[in-house]
């Protein structure tokens, strides 16, 4: 049931799907990097970066609006950035006194705030496109090729395999808690907060023990198949011509985004 909730991968055979995961990972990181170093208010460059995203969505066969739908996940964090409006010196737009804070909204602050939001909005969509067109196990292999420590790669692979299994266990625990959380009419259900926290804590403890015991069984299953402390994986990687081509085009595109951002046409 949580296939849809947890699996962000969208099946497909597009060029983007078939591209080497390493190229995709590197491109995504460079894309986000490029957004981060664009100056505040480089609207044309931001627009170009957005066009790149749209092109990516189109090529992937997911449809142009695909990444936009979930792209506002970072919105709550805007609350933290709102204060940027009042933190930069510049032409005063408005002033408020709010308790002990004297808030001066400036044009520079406004510019900074909007730029932060745009950067974040673009970057999150880049990551979404990556995850929608790349199976997570292939991503894990890409990390291995990109020299992430082997132990960490292995932990992430286990995490990916077992988060589904353990989430199921959590759901079962929560359902059994729910089904026992009865209350008499007119009385508040759930008991005092300490008690509720203790129930949750017991569930966490329960889950810990089950997980611990499961790791014993998995260890045995690994031993039975010849594991002796070294994880070995088979994970060939060859760059095809189209991978190089894509990498070159993508690099050129991001370079022009930077050029436009730094030397605005006037």
């Amino acid at each position: 049931m949580h296939d849809n909730v947890f699996d962000r991968y969208r099946e497909g055979g597009s060029l983007l799907h078939r591209l080497s995961p390493i190229v995709k990972v590197v491109f995504t990181v460079v894309f986000i990097f490029s957004n981060a170093i664009l100056p505040d208010g480089a609207w044309l460059a931001f627009g170009l970066a957005w066009l790149l995203l749209l092109a990516g969505s189109q090529i992937s066969g997911l449809g142009i609006g695909f990444t936009a739908k979930r792209s506002f996940i970072a919105l709550p964090f805007a609350l933290a950035a709102v204060t940027a409006i009042f933190s930069l010196p510049g032409r005063t737009l408005a002033e408020w006194d709010f308790g002990r804070w004297h808030l001066v909204a400036t044009d520079a602050g406004m510019l900074r705030f909007v730029s932060i939001m745009v950067r974040s909005w673009l970057s999150v969509q880049g990551a979404m496109l990556l995850i929608a067109t790349t199976r997570f196990p292939d991503l894990i292999h890409a990390f291995e090729h990109l020299r992430m420590p082997r132990l960490l790669v292995t932990i992430i692979a286990f995490l990916y395999r077992y988060m589904f299994v353990l989430t199921d266990e959590v759901l079962r625990l929560m359902r059994s808690r729910q089904s026992r959380a009865a209350s008499l009419p007119g009385r508040k259900a759930g008991g005092p907060i300490i008690w509720r926290a203790r129930v949750a804590g017991n569930m966490v403890g329960q889950l810990f023990l089950r997980s611990y015991e499961r790791s014993d069984r998995i260890y045995n299953a690994m031993l039975a198949r010849g594991y002796e402390g070294q994880m070995r994986t088979l994970n060939r990687h060859e760059m095809a011509a189209q991978d190089w081509l894509f990498a070159a085009l993508a690099a050129a595109a991001l370079l022009s985004v930077q050029l436009v951002g730094r030397f605005p046409l006037r």
Binding site: F158, M163, T167, G190, R196, S215, Y219
Partner: peptide
């Protein structure tokens, strides 16, 4: 060597435990 699967499962445990909430 036992530590490898243990840490892997414990990562999944923390991930799943973060979903356990209380009102």
């Amino acid at each position: 060597e036992r530590q490898v699967p243990l840490m892997g499962i414990m990562a999944a445990f923390i991930f799943a435990a973060q979903m356990i909430n209380f009102p």
